[in-house]
Computed example of a mutant assay.
Amino acid sequence: MSKGLRIAFFGSSLVSAYWNAAATYYRGIIRALHSRGHQVTFYEPDAYERQKHRDIADPPWARVVVYPAEGTEAVERCLESARGSDVVVKASGVGVFDALLEARVLDLRGPDTQVVFWDVDASTTLERMRKNPGDPFRALIPHYDHILTYGGGEPVVQAYRALGARQCVPIYNALDPSTHHPVARHPRFVGDLAFLGNRLPDREARVEDFFLTAAKLLPQQRFLLGGSGWGDRPLPSNVRYLGHVYTPDHNALNCTPRAVLNISRESMTRFGFSPAMRVFEAAGAAACLITDAWEGIEMFLEPGYEVLVAHHGAGVAELLSELNAEQARCIGEAARRRVLAEHTYSHRALQVEAVLGFTAARRTSLGAQEQVA
């Protein structure tokens, strides 16, 4: 394939999903961009013990540069090494040096370099700026060539445009069929309903409602809770706590129980149009997914046919009590067909290229320049 774009990407982590919900999203997008001929260098800090909890080695589809989380010298060197890239991306929620990076990547912008802010948690970013009109990021928004978001639909687009964004385009989560797919059932994950999600302040009350209430209403059924931070939380006797579930085990966790549950964070439900990664991971594994209700779900999966939708924990319990194995299998297989047809990261990579103005003619032009050089 002819030459693609050189992309410098400053994010939380590509190689570790530990306290890093965006890892699967980054991997899917970047692997798909690489498959289309683009070269990505991913800069990530050695922070939050993520390097100690790596779940993949440095991948062949991206160059990974890990820099210290203390002092600014190393991150400044990374910024300088990114100079001259075709595209420089600053993702939200790096966790360290966020304010520095948000400002400094704009220094790399030029006639041949586009600078992108990629918001992987737009609801949190927008809420932060709403509460603090003096947030320094507000003044930077109009200077970015593009704002891309993990989700949010038209409400997020309009919110960013009101803050001066030149353009804002949601690049939704998707499926990477090479990493999330059906596998054999595993004894560790046998149960009736599984939920996987870290314990976060704007999620805990909804987990209490949609998951723990359902467990209390169905004491004879078996529930599985995975994710970090729940160890000291009192749980019903029919809920088994799994702790952190590493990415390689996600397929078995999705394939083994009768159904899996998606619970959106409170901030994400306010904006809607934000399917979590677990929605596509579950669909890719042909799991039967029960999700809380959020605006825009029908854009991705058809309620009642490809996904089951509940408005509260009692609704989850009712759906689960009526769901037999054959129904669960049919729903999971229908969801898998839908996401393979419309919602893979290959589809998203094409969308990113369109936003960046990377056309077939541009690819040919870069390839010709490389041959001349």
Rank of each mutant, 00 (worst) to 15 (best):
P155Q: 09
P142M: 07
H347W: 09
L193W: 05
Y18Q: 10
N198G: 12
S321T: 04
E102G: 12
Y48A: 13
V352A: 08
R161N: 09
E208M: 00
E306I: 02
W61I: 01
A165P: 12
A32I: 02
A285Q: 05
V339H: 13
P59G: 05
G164V: 00
Y305A: 09
A99R: 14
T364S: 10
Y172E: 13
H343C: 06
I297P: 05
D292M: 03
A317C: 03
C288Y: 06
S267F: 04
A252S: 14
M299N: 13
Q220S: 15
P219S: 09
L148A: 13
D232H: 12
H181T: 14
L308Y: 04
E76N: 09
Q369N: 07
E298Y: 04
Q114V: 01
G110L: 04
V88P: 09
H347I: 01
A32F: 01
H312I: 02
A91G: 11
V94E: 10
A69V: 02
L217M: 13
G71C: 07
A259I: 00
V183C: 11
G37L: 03
E80H: 04
R258C: 05
E322F: 00
F210N: 01
A285R: 06
A62S: 14
G226M: 00
I56Q: 10
V89L: 08
P170S: 10
S346Q: 11
G304H: 13
T24E: 07
T72I: 04
Q220R: 15
V15F: 01
H143L: 02
E80F: 02
D176W: 01
Q221D: 11
G243T: 04
G229V: 05
H34T: 04
S365D: 10
R83M: 06
F97S: 12
R128V: 04
I147Y: 09
